[in-house]
């Protein structure tokens, strides 16, 4: 499986392709600690993003993960901790 790291650039690319980009939101700005809700992403958007993360990075996010992760930073940390371990 992949041993690379998920960067914020990778994540914004995934978000754009999985769920588009909310009008008035600049995904290329400093979004690491901005809530996904503020970025315009609902639970459906995050489920689709998580599904693509699973396909591309082989990381499975549990229901509890999905509930706990509310920012891009939290998502990167969670995914990268798994990638490092594997």
């Amino acid at each position: 499986m992949a041993t690379r790291e998920l960067t914020i650039a990778d994540l914004t690319r995934l978000l754009r392709s999985a769920a588009g980009e909310e009008e008035g939101v600049d995904l290329d700005g400093d979004i690491l600690d901005t809530d996904f809700a503020t970025l315009g992403y609902d639970s459906l958007a995050l489920l689709e993003t998580a599904s693509r993360l699973g396909v591309e990075y082989g990381v499975t996010l549990t229901d509890d993960d999905m509930e706990a992760i509310t920012t891009p930073r939290a998502l990167l940390d969670r995914v990268n901790s798994t990638l490092t371990r594997s």
Partner: peptide
């Protein structure tokens, strides 16, 4: 179509 709706 808004960007958010394109993938869906």
């Amino acid at each position: 179509v808004p960007s958010r709706l394109l993938p869906q």
